[in-house]
């Protein structure tokens, strides 16, 4: 089984874990990410696990250790896309991984890490006002003003 690519995107590293994972591959990912943080002077790591149908205590530990090492090297790690069944199982297993930062999507993680992302997703929040801007922004037909 081949290695998992660690992709630099600006000052963030992006890792997407796909499919069945051998222990050795998971362990080498840990090395690869730590080395890449150093090499690219990264300040954030996003690990997407939306393709994983299982995380056991070994893989949970690998994720927690990647986050721990990254922190020591000055980079924040965010794990994204964990499936419901995987989350329930991890918690039942006793692994709540409180040190691990998480986000629903890669995009959310990028926002958390302060990385610029395209704002094509302004579908959200049809009525209420963005906190940082006093004016209501409505992409649609918001023309009820005078």
């Amino acid at each position: 089984m081949s290695q998992i690519p660690v992709i630099p995107l600006g000052d963030v590293l992006f890792v997407s874990i796909q499919g069945e994972l051998y222990d050795a591959v998971a362990l080498s990912l840990q090395d690869d990410v730590t080395n890449a943080i150093q090499a690219h002077n990264a300040r954030g790591v996003i690990i997407d696990i939306s393709a994983l149908d299982m995380v056991d205590s070994f893989l949970g530990r690998v994720l927690a250790e990647i986050a721990g090492c990254s922190r020591l090297l000055g980079a924040d790690t965010v794990v994204t896309g964990m499936r419901p069944a995987v989350a329930i199982t991890l918690v039942e297993l006793g692994l709540t991984l409180p040190e691990l930062r998480t986000a629903r999507t890669v995009e959310d993680a990028a926002l958390m890490l302060g990385v610029w992302v395209s704002s094509r997703t302004s579908r959200a929040a049809p009525v209420a006002v963005r906190q940082d801007e006093p004016e209501a922004m409505d992409g649609g037909s918001g023309t009820d003003g005078p």
């Binding site: 964990m82 918690v91 709540t96 991984l97 998480t102 999507t105």
Partner: peptide, 12 residues
């Protein structure tokens, strides 16, 4: 607590 922990792992 378990529900809260699971939701957090999923990023919510």
């Amino acid at each position: 607590m378990k529900t809260v922990a699971s939701a957090r792992l999923m990023g919510a």
